[in-house]
Amino acid sequence: MSTLTIKNLHVSVKGKKILRGVDLTLNEGETLALLGPNGHGKSTLLAAIMGNPNFEVTEGSIELDGKDVLAMEVDERSKAGLFLAMQNPVEIPGVNSAEFYKAALNVRREKPISVFEYYRLLEKAYKEMGIPFEMSQRNLNEGFSGGEKKRNEILQMKLLNPTFAFLDEIDSGLDVDAMRVVAKAIEEEQGKGKGFLVISHYARLYTMIHPTRTAVMVNGRIVVEGGPEIVTRIDTEGYEWIRREYGISLEKLEKEGSQVSLGTCSTKVLLNGDKKE
């Protein structure tokens, strides 16, 4: 059985401390619900596990079956069995979705997947996720709706078959039907013994996927751990009881959201160091 072990993890973003000593263990076959108020480090934890270069690990360790995850490149973490379904999957112009998935599959195989096998695998995954197969020919996430991007993340999870999957607000932007499709896909992978760490603000998803454990992150630390009943309590009472019962006041830790600029009509320019479009 594989185990992911996080000890005393400290992570900073642009010099600002976000995680302040996270201790957490995730075993294969478990589904851990990670809750916490906005801006307290949940997504930072997932990004740090996966090796996002914008998140600097200043202290602590992450081990996968005793192997130092922090010493691995991002692609090595993926090939070691870690998968992050991102909260805001980026749009990547010019990269065909089907070509990308095939390349991601092939780096895990000794021999490249045959065209026929790949076509069958891809078609099955699209069907199961309720995504029109034609979308496999679109550029990666480009022009996808929020819900399509989230389903596309789960589709990749199914294709790449990780040992541990980290789902960052996978339910945001999903309508009720899409939520069922995603929950069913997660349940199928749970049945295969995969480990999940799932961030969501809403009990609805957790009701569908039945987490085995719950952890609550406040001020960059795990302050409460327990069973699935904690999800229900937070859903009905919020986080006030943590302050009351544990004497922990809520700070605001994470950076503000990144700036977004809009282009105009059909002329676009990107010049030296100028991030505006």
Partner: peptide
Amino acid sequence: HLFYMTSRGLK
């Protein structure tokens, strides 16, 4: 972009 693509196993 590169983080997204490498997180799926590509160098």
